[in-house]
């Protein structure tokens, strides 16, 4: 997590306080919001000999600055902007598309199309705004397998057929983007590396490049192997830390975050085997939208399990050369 490094953005504005409070804050070294929030109101009042009203004032000013930092781009972008999944029916089931802010989880058995879905979104995020894209790049973190580069090349070459349109200006805009260049790929195998990547690498990458999408394919792989049964509390703590940090990044920079999860068969259901997403309650509490993919011998389905933006539904789809498409 962020250490106590004072940065200009959470500095208190001393000018707003009366001279006595100013002097106390300066003397006590209480110059950033983080320093203030180390104390409770009562502690601060007692320790630094302030009046109740003055302490309240300090906390209110600190929280003003602190909340304005939660979301750096709040006034620049329309909030709750949607990103297309590249398939109209799935967009409709999601309430218009994938919503910015928060973590979207996609789970399912192996081979039912999770990676295909993620690859497709790594491309649609680069589409111009008129196509419900975000015209930005993506970070793709692989933990299970090598990044399927030949598949994405195939999808890129088929992209222009998918979005055939009459409008020539849009078409040229569509062809200008070099899709392969805008996906940063990182291969990670351990929890430690994943932490390092999210805490240190990502914030730097976000500063230098226009990135709006982070895909972790999958979050489960690293967390399944490394912990013994008795280490369950440590595992859920690590998971929570990671998810909280991802969520903060998402809110601060306006990102879409997609995490792939595996499934576990649940024994508690009397009716028989039932597949539930892995990683348990401590992870599920931090997920904003949960999607589940399933495969029957004849067709594949994508199901919205929960989402603040729409109700539970299920949509059939097929995987083609172009990517994921819904059946009409």
């Amino acid at each position: 997590m962020d250490q106590m490094t004072p940065s200009a953005e959470d500095d208190l504005d001393l000018e707003v306080f009366d001279p006595y409070t100013q002097a106390v804050l300066l003397k006590g070294g209480l110059l950033t919001t983080k320093h203030i929030f180390q104390y409770t109101e009562a502690e601060l009042q007692k320790k630094f000999n302030l009046t109740a009203a003055a302490t309240r004032r300090v906390f209110i000013e600190a929280s003003k600055i602190s909340t304005s930092n939660v979301n750096s781009g709040r006034y620049k972008e329309p909030h709750n902007q949607v990103l297309t999944t590249g398939c109209d029916h799935i967009d409709k089931a999601l309430g218009g598309g994938l919503f910015k802010y928060g973590i979207t989880e996609i789970s399912g058995e192996s081979g039912c199309g999770k990676t295909q879905f993620c690859l497709q979104i790594a491309l649609t995020v680069q589409l111009p705004l008129s196509f419900k894209g975000a015209k930005s790049g993506a970070v793709y973190i692989c933990t299970e397998d090598r990044f399927p580069s030949s598949r994405i090349q195939q999808m890129i070459s088929n992209l222009r057929f998918k979005y055939q349109c009459d409008n020539r200006i849009d078409m040229s805009e569509l062809c200008q983007t070099n899709y392969g260049d805008n996906i940063l790929i990182s291969h990670i195998a351990t929890v430690e590396d994943l932490k390092k990547c999210i805490h240190e690498m990502l914030p730097k990458a976000l500063l230098h490049r226009s990135i709006k999408l982070i895909v972790i394919d999958s979050i489960t792989a690293v967390f399944r192997g490394e912990y013994t049964l008795s280490e369950a509390p440590r595992r859920s703590r690590d998971l929570r830390d990671l998810a909280f940090c991802l969520h903060n990044l998402s809110v601060k920079h306006g990102l879409w975050i997609i995490c792939v999860n595996q499934v576990t068969s649940s024994m508690s259901d009397i009716t028989g085997k039932k597949l539930v997403p892995s990683l348990g309650l401590s992870w599920a509490n931090l997920v904003t939208t949960r999607l589940l993919m399933s495969k029957t011998p004849c067709s594949r389905y994508i199901e919205v399990i929960f989402s603040p933006h729409s109700g539970p539904t299920s949509v059939p789809f097929v995987v083609t050369e172009q990517g994921i498409e819904s059946l009409n």
Binding site: F37, F59, I60, S63, S66, T67, N71, R74
Partner: peptide, 15 residues
């Protein structure tokens, strides 16, 4: 709507 990531920030409710 106010976005927050710390319960201390609830002080902003006064204003």
């Amino acid at each position: 709507r106010i976005q927050m990531n710390d319960l201390n920030q609830l002080h902003i409710l006064y204003t």
